[in-house]
Nucleic acid binder design. Structure first.
Lengths: 146, 146
DNA sequence: TGAAATCCGACTTAATAGGTAGGAATTAAT
DNA sequence: ATTAATTCCTACCTATTAAGTCGGATTTCA
């Protein structure tokens, strides 16, 4: 039931870009260093985020990536679904119900629907801006402890 | 983000046993036929359910499996976690936090925790008895339509 | 012109999912 | 006693996927 690294790393990329929002493009190399991840792998992931219209790229030296929309207008759900596909615990509840129309008495399907609803409620209610705020909250707390 | 067949089929097994609760053991062969699944595969799954104390087996002819507890005392969460392990979207929130103690500023971790909470709230609030009731509700509805 | 970046597509490699196969042990019914 | 139905156990199989790596082309700033 684990999310793949696509979704997990993808969210980390977007979070770093959100921290940097408004300060020009950030090279992927820097994202990779901050999060200790492979740059070449992140390249693949961010290609999807770009295609989905979440980030814009600036090529060449001093280039990089930046968010197209404001952090408060991008939900965690949108990011994760872009990279993972529908957040469903079973294929039979992924919008297109292929052959599960034989679901005369498919009671388990009701369970998958409720789980999916639960997950989506959570991820759609959190934005990148919430994450940025969490970061500063954590930071202040740590400084207060010194 | 899909649940494996272990959890999905395992729940179907338990659901069939719940429908049959109080009427003696049900052979796995019958479960497999009703749900159109491979009997030999289900054998592996139910071994775990037995070890976890959710079902009891009666060997030999006329044998089979039955629930140990009443359907209303078995939650969907317990079943799925038995077969899938912790329902966490990331390893770093699976009870034992191995190396993620470098989580100085791990804001994404907060997200995984909320997702996990959301999932567990759903599955722990539903029992096998709820599923049985859903079945009869669906059935009555279908008969009413005739 | 050179360094810093994005872009692109093919390749690799280990692990996992989702089973199958074969047979031993147990028990009820005949 | 024998047979048929069942659980139990261990090993094996095979296709897919996850999680990257690699090499090079292209773009752009300084």
């Amino acid at each position: 039931m684990i999310l793949s690294t696509k979704g997990r790393y993808g969210l980390k990329i977007m979070y770093e870009l959100a921290l940097n929002y408004g300060e020009g493009p950030m090279p992927l190399k820097e994202v990779a260093q901050r999060q200790q991840l492979s740059e070449t792998y992140l390249e693949q992931l961010i290609a999807h985020l770009k295609k989905a219209g979440l980030v814009r790229s600036i090529r060449g030296a001093q280039g990089g990536y930046e968010l197209i929309r404001k952090p408060e207008e991008i939900s965690v759900g949108e990011i994760i679904r872009t990279l993972e596909g529908p957040l469903a615990p079973s294929e039979c509840v992924m919008d297109n119900e292929p052959e599960c129309t034989k679901a005369e008495n498919c009671v388990t399907r009701l369970i998958w629907e409720k789980i999916m609803e639960g997950i989506n409620n959570v991820v759609d209610s959190i934005t990148l801006n919430d994450m940025v705020n969490d970061y500063y909250k954590l930071k202040r707390k740590k400084e207060g402890e010194k």
